[in-house]
Amino acid sequence: MNPLLLFVFVLAIFLGLELITKVPSQLHTPLMSGSNAISGITIVGAIVAAGEGGVLATVLGTIAVTAATVNVIGGYLVTERMLGMFKRGKDA
């Protein structure tokens, strides 16, 4: 393992702690949903597992790619829908 990865990890944690403050309550659910879509980044790990390994790793990796893609596509689309409602509600 590259020790610099730990360095990146610590900095990203601190950045994440500072990134969102004073979020209006109507945005809580969309923000949760939008950040949930980002955690679908595990799709990158799933792709590697499904495309590089032996039989069992390929099976597990393929299920992982499927599950992570559901998370990514579903997550972004659901957030988009929520925010669409939010905008219209505000204009009215």
Partner: peptide
Amino acid sequence: IDNVVLIVAGSLVGASGLIL
């Protein structure tokens, strides 16, 4: 898997999710 983008995005969600 030694992948930096997973670490960045994952920690961002982990930390900001805790704040939320």
